[in-house]
Design a protein around this nucleic acid. Structure first.
Lengths: 190, 190
DNA sequence: GACGATGAGACAGTTTTTGTCTTAATGTCT
DNA sequence: AGACATTAAGACAAAAACTGTCTCATCGTC
């Protein structure tokens, strides 16, 4: 039993609570009860209460997300293929994310804020940590940061507001979509 | 615009709120906002706050339920047929009731209490009011009250905890189920 | 038996909710 | 126009819920 079992159990319970009651209506007591842990323990493990818990949950979801994403992109040895794979997999994961769908349905404001404003810097930071090693064979550190930042923003935007002409969940469409950008990148390097 | 439009609009909003947040988490303000009415008006129309509102909503749902049920049983001119029709229609309505399903999922305790303890007397009272005229051609007033009471309890019980051998949503099964009881009733009258 | 971690719950301070009331605005009727 | 009823908005105090911290008894581990 690793030391993280208690924390992750609490985060599981918090996730269920957020789904059931929404971030606004949940109390620390709700989460304590749902996780079978006393309020004292909860504060000891997550000092700061609901906000810290919510934040910790997002970090966990985010790292899980990018764990799966990088696994998905393992073994691809062409830059364009890699970008396509990443975008498509990320888009499909987002679309398949039940938790995200529930939260978007019950608290669109909070979730949109997390996806596009408040939480975006963190998302970009985590994405950069995870994806930089994958793209470094093809790009400089600066280029990698810029490209990853851009890909995160585009993937989220097209997830939230799908285009009529582009489907980033489809490899062919995604490839077609990114080719001009990659060409421009190659050109800028000359 | 009848005078009941305001009330029923508020009840609609309350219903949505109860579904979204549960009886426990909703505040009067939530319902006031959802119904586009000021809190003052809400208290004027439903003095007593959340409990009174919840109660009024149940009364409305209940009368709607029995309105549909009696319509369903119109024109049946045999006692056994009538009972079968009522039981089957009631069971099917209960199973098809989305609001009930949502509430049972999110707040089983509260809903079960309403179905089996707190709210049962009211349900039986309303059922008696609606169904007595239908069964009076075949039964005395006392018999009618007893039979209706029994049918309500059985229908709710079999809805909440379906039997392996009896399906009150199926006319054949329901008829088979009630026949002994009706025979006993006929015997007792002799 | 000492140790650290935990559950239960007391506690005060804060925030939220409640229920009432007043005021100004709105629409209706004569 | 003027009297009338109804309402939204929001001030207000009282009640309730929530928060964050603390203490203490208990439990399992070493």
């Amino acid at each position: 039993m690793g030391t993280n079992t208690a924390e992750s159990g609490i985060l599981d319970a918090a996730k269920r609570c957020f789904e059931q009651w929404g971030v606004a209506k949940v109390t620390i007591d709700d989460i304590a009860n749902a996780s079978g842990v006393s309020r004292a323990t909860l504060y000891r493990l997550f000092p700061g209460g609901k906000e810290v818990l919510f934040s910790a949950l997002q970090v966990r979801e985010l790292t899980d997300f990018f764990d799966r994403l990088t696994a998905e992109a393992a073994g691809v040895d062409d830059f364009e293929d890699l970008v396509v794979r990443l975008i498509v997999a990320a888009t499909r994961e987002l679309r398949a994310d039940e938790h995200l769908a529930i939260m978007l349905g019950s608290e669109p404001g909070e979730v949109l804020s997390q996806l596009t404003v408040e939480g975006l810097p963190r998302t970009i930071r985590v994405a950069t940590q995870y994806l930089t090693p994958l793209v470094r064979p093809y790009l400089s550190a600066n280029e990698a940061a810029t490209v990853i930042d851009l890909l995160v923003r585009l993937t989220i935007s097209y997830f939230l507001a799908p285009s009529d002409t582009i489907d980033l969940g489809d490899p062919i469409s995604a490839r077609q979509f990114i080719q001009p950008g990659l060409a421009a990148l190659a050109f800028a390097r000359t």
